[in-house]
Amino acid sequence: MKVPDWSAATDGPAEKQRRRHDPHRRARILDAALDVIAEHGVARTTHRKIAEAAGVPLGSVTYHFESLEGLVGEAFTKLGNRTADGFEAAMAAVGNEAQARTAVVSLITGEMLNDPRTTALSYELYALASRSPQMRHVTDAWMARSRAAIGRFFDPDTALMLDALIEGLSVHRALSLAPMPRTTVEAAVERIVRIS
């Protein structure tokens, strides 16, 4: 008679205990929600798809988040915070206005805002916020942090204009078959700074 090899079992008490007390599960669910939204759009996002993407039971998603709307809102807040963190890091790395202008150009032309996943998620958020006043709080908080980061080197009106330029040119570059060259982006930033 063959003795079973219980050491190969993956669902023993230790494994069950680890899953039950997974301190990062909520964060994984939020990241999975962003993945699902990027792939399927908000309209086709479900609790079940998020649970599958996170590798957790469906009940775990509904345990951590009371509603799909709340989960999507928190996921987009996480996206906004990551992007605002990127703005803050970019502006913290410079020491004067000339370097800040270069940093703004790099935000527009760099990878952070031009990553296909981030672009898709941003458009989903914009579309949702256009119909949901509650979601506008997410976009407003994101923009406020971005403007504050830019505002370390520019007055409030200029920071507002530069923030709008970053958003607009990022959209233009993402959708254009011939994206605006960096030299044109540099000229746009210079014009805004010069006239303000």
Rank of each mutant, 00 (worst) to 15 (best):
E88T: 05
S170V: 08
L125M: 06
A141S: 08
D155T: 03
I150K: 05
L160R: 05
A75W: 11
R191D: 07
A100V: 01
A174T: 09
R194I: 10
T102Q: 11
A103V: 13
E111A: 13
V104K: 05
A98N: 08
V138K: 06
P179H: 08
D115K: 04
E190D: 14
D115V: 06
S170D: 08
I166G: 03
A89E: 12
G86R: 09
R152P: 03
A93H: 09
R82Q: 12
A75Y: 04
A127G: 13
R194Q: 03
G80I: 02
D85A: 13
I150V: 15
L169R: 02
I108S: 07
L162F: 04
R182M: 12
A84T: 11
A84V: 07
M143A: 14
R194T: 14
D115C: 10
T83H: 01
H172R: 05
I150T: 09
T184R: 15
F154V: 05
R101M: 07
A103H: 02
T184N: 14
L125N: 01
L165I: 07
S146M: 11
T102E: 14
R194G: 03
L113E: 07
G168M: 04
T184D: 14
G151W: 00
P179K: 04
S176Q: 12
F87K: 06
N114L: 13
D163H: 13
A84Q: 13
T118Q: 10
A148C: 05
F153P: 00
L162M: 07
V105R: 10
V189W: 11
L79N: 03
T139N: 07
L160A: 02
D155S: 02
T102S: 15
A178D: 11
T119V: 15
L128S: 10
P116H: 08
V171N: 02
A188R: 11
V94R: 05
S176F: 09
K78T: 06
A188E: 06
R145L: 12
R131N: 13
P179L: 10
M112P: 03
